[in-house]
Computed example of a mutant assay.
Amino acid sequence: MAVLLLGLVLFLGVHSTRIVADGWRAGMLARLGERPWKGLYSLVSLLGFALIVWGFARARQSPVVLWTPPRGMNHVAALLMVVSFVLLAAAYVPRNGIKARLHHPMVLGVKTWAFAHLLANGTLADVVLFGAFLVWAIADFASSRRRDRAQAITYPPGTARGTTIAVVVGLLLWALFVVRAHAWLIGVSPLGL
């Protein structure tokens, strides 16, 4: 569990600099320059992510069961994951109505992903991993919205085409992940496929 916790501290820590230390982040960006800052940020993120994967895999070998989710929660989680993947796609598809309306769909997608997995899993490692990401996503979304208001940031209006592309790409990614990638990457088929 210590490896998982260290990974979460590194990964979510570096992703929290705008939440808790935006002034420090701006100073480091000015001192180091954009490319070196992004390189350092990426290096710490990758190290944290690798430790999260390794630590979670180790924790799953000796699970501490806190509760057994009610029957059917994996199906509720799968439906929430549809929303999560659409939000993820909306973060990258230009001029879609989802991003125009919600402003930070990636963070909302992480929030939905974490909540869905908390519903469907009841081990200590699950609560630590998905709970940490849920708390981070809530804090990051609130911080991002405050920063948008303070800087009077506006988002371009969405188009029907952009919104349709975001939804279709999200649905395709969800289907691919449910049918193949989740079992291959995580070792568990979310719907028992």
Rank of each mutant, 00 (worst) to 15 (best):
V86R: 00
F85Q: 08
P70H: 05
P63F: 02
R149H: 13
S144Y: 02
R147Y: 11
I138G: 12
L129Y: 09
V82T: 10
L87F: 09
R147F: 09
A132L: 02
A160F: 07
A137C: 06
A160Q: 12
A78E: 12
A152G: 12
V93M: 01
W67A: 09
G158N: 01
Q151T: 15
I153L: 15
A114V: 06
R145A: 08
P156E: 10
L118Y: 05
H104A: 08
A116S: 12
P157A: 14
S84V: 02
D126A: 13
G122C: 05
Y155N: 01
A120H: 09
A160G: 09
V65S: 10
T154G: 09
A125S: 15
L118N: 08
L88N: 12
G131Q: 06
N121C: 04
T154C: 02
R101P: 04
A100P: 06
T68P: 11
A90V: 02
P70L: 11
T159A: 01
S144T: 14
M81N: 14
G122W: 07
V82F: 04
N74L: 09
G158I: 00
H104Q: 11
N96A: 02
S84K: 02
R146P: 03
V107P: 04
F115V: 15
K99E: 07
V76Q: 05
A91P: 03
T112A: 12
